[in-house]
Design a binder for these strands. Structure first.
Ligand SMILES: [Mn+2]
Ligand SMILES: [Mn+2]
Ligand SMILES: [Zn+2]
Ligand SMILES: [Zn+2]
Lengths: 139, 139
DNA sequence: CTCTATGATTAGAATGATTCTAATTTAAGC
DNA sequence: GCTTAAATTAGAATCATTCTAATCATAGAG
């Protein structure tokens, strides 16, 4: 009953993704998936790893984040030009983006009504992102 | 009757924005606003200027783009981590983003129905962006 | 029209995020 | 325990963007 996610532990998660369970990947997977859903930058995750005394290079953090995205374990969020956010919530959902703090907050997809979506002139819809940008109060 | 926009020519537009009508700003304003609405990167606009034999540095292109954003003449679109798009359409609208080509296409805001927007826990909504990401056909 | 002050432009350096390279280390399977 | 392929790493390289500080141009005054 400790398993609230499909993959209770980092090891199974890596196995299912066909990624070798190395020391670094295990540690990063724990940092990412043993907390609730959240949003991190590569730099932040690297900082967390160092704080947890996990020796891992920034290059490996980037490699791992991209591998996790490719495996469908993470999703990349483009909200700020010049910095990528990685999102542990891979369910269909939307975001508040707080411009002052640079923080993201999830909005469950059934909490917003997006209807009457136009068809693209070519290709297929891969994702629909709604970003609500929030600035300082008093518009 | 050549004026389909509020500012028919670049000079008036710069005056209204309280920006000195320098050679470079005039040329960039023409490249941006004398065509229909479109989306450009700084690098692209710099290339267009050079093709039009307008001597302007990349630094000035960036300066000018940001001044135009601040003046409300342009809008910055964050859709691709690592590169900013500037949008001459400042009306409330949404986008298709074609992942293969990196191109944006406008969707008028009344063409999509976004309702039941949640209130942010703090601050005020500054903008609501809907981005429809389009990948290669055959999902 | 000329002068001056302020603002704008510029080349090139600096920055910050991300990616790459090539060398070293590690994990997997025997 | 070996061998081999994959992973990690430090550091260099790259790319977009911003900064610096020097030069140039515009606007307004005289
Ligand atoms: Mn990526
Ligand atoms: Mn900007
Ligand atoms: Zn999220
Ligand atoms: Zn647009």
């Amino acid at each position: 009953m400790t398993a609230s996610r499909p993959y209770a532990n980092a090891l199974e998660l890596l196995r299912a993704a066909k990624l070798r369970p190395t020391r670094q990947r295990l540690a990063l997977a724990r940092l990412l998936f043993e907390k609730g859903d959240h949003h991190v930058t590569a730099e932040q995750l690297h900082g967390e790893a160092q704080a947890a005394a996990v020796p891992v290079s920034l290059a490996t953090v980037y490699n791992t984040l991209h591998q996790f995205v490719d495996a469908g374990l993470l999703r990349e969020v483009a909200v700020n030009p010049g910095r990528s956010y990685f999102d542990t919530n891979t369910a269909d959902h939307h975001h508040f983006f707080f411009e002052e703090t640079g923080k993201l907050m999830d909005i469950p997809s059934d909490r917003i009504n997006v209807t009457n979506l136009p068809e693209p002139p070519q290709g297929a819809i891969h994702r629909v992102d709604v970003t609500i940008r929030v600035g300082k109060a008093k518009a």
